[in-house]
């Protein structure tokens, strides 16, 4: 945290072993993201966007390189330590929502707090999170009783409920129509405005990318281009 970077990654590589073949998904990525930045990661399919997101989100470890999340060296933590980091510092929003189908919206949002051991005020916080994404009147609905956009909003409520430092969204609007997609983007950008949450998007959509401040292009596991978006350039 000392130098203001939430994410400080150096020479990150990721190699998948597929039998005899080694797949080099990332081949040396240096990345600095400051607190409160809004970043989108773009690039052709297979360029390593999701792989990078997984490492940034502590779901996976790099094969080599160092990675500091809020000043903590993450690369050599145990599985359970990583789980705790994800629980406290990272919120995920997936393309396919990934809600627990048998549980109510409320229970889905409470889930990260349960694993954090939060007991008092958990329900209240979950309701507030759902209200902040405009679902205060849907707390007892199950995912199959909600529209795609609403499901994704539940997922956002779940991601923000533990006040994470970063929210990672891997193609969050990929399964949604334009209008719901815009709403989702508005909610996520609002989080940044209200709480200063760092946002990282993976997207193929230039429209989405143009709403962020900084665009990182990946190609073949390397950073091809890292630039300010038009939105910032035009200011």
């Amino acid at each position: 945290m000392t130098d203001g970077y939430v994410i400080k990654a150096d020479a990150i590589t990721k190699v998948y072993q597929m039998g005899q073949i080694e797949v080099h998904a990332l081949r040396g990525i240096d990345l600095r993201i400051a607190a409160g930045e809004i970043v989108s990661i773009m690039g052709p399919s297979g360029s390593g966007k999701s792989t990078l997101m997984n490492i940034v989100g502590c779901l996976d470890r790099p094969t080599a390189g160092s990675y500091y999340l809020e000043g903590e060296q993450v690369a050599d933590m145990s599985d359970d330590q990583l789980a705790a980091i994800r629980n406290r510092k990272v919120g995920f929003v997936f393309q396919s929502f990934n809600l627990l189908g048998r549980q109510s919206a409320l229970n889905n949002v409470e889930l990260p707090m349960r694993y954090a051991g939060v007991n008092s005020g958990r329900r209240k916080r979950a309701i507030e999170a759902l209200e902040s994404v405009g679902l205060g009147d849907r707390i007892d609905h199950r995912p199959n009783e909600l529209s795609g956009g609403q499901q994704q909003r539940v997922a956002i409520a779940r991601a923000l409920v533990n006040n994470p430092a970063i929210i990672l969204a891997d193609e969050p609007t990929g399964n949604l129509d334009t209008k719901s997609g815009e709403e989702i983007m508005k909610i996520l950008l609002g989080l940044n405005e209200d709480f200063g949450t760092t946002l990282i998007f993976v997207t193929h959509d230039p429209e989405i990318a143009s709403m962020t401040e900084r665009i990182i292009h990946l190609r073949d596991g390397l950073v091809e281009q890292d630039r300010q978006s038009e939105r910032v350039a035009n200011q």
Binding site: G57, A83, R86, N98, P112, Y115
Partner: peptide
């Protein structure tokens, strides 16, 4: 998903 939101082993 549970692991992603912080479930330990």
């Amino acid at each position: 998903l549970r692991k992603a939101v912080g479930a330990r082993k």
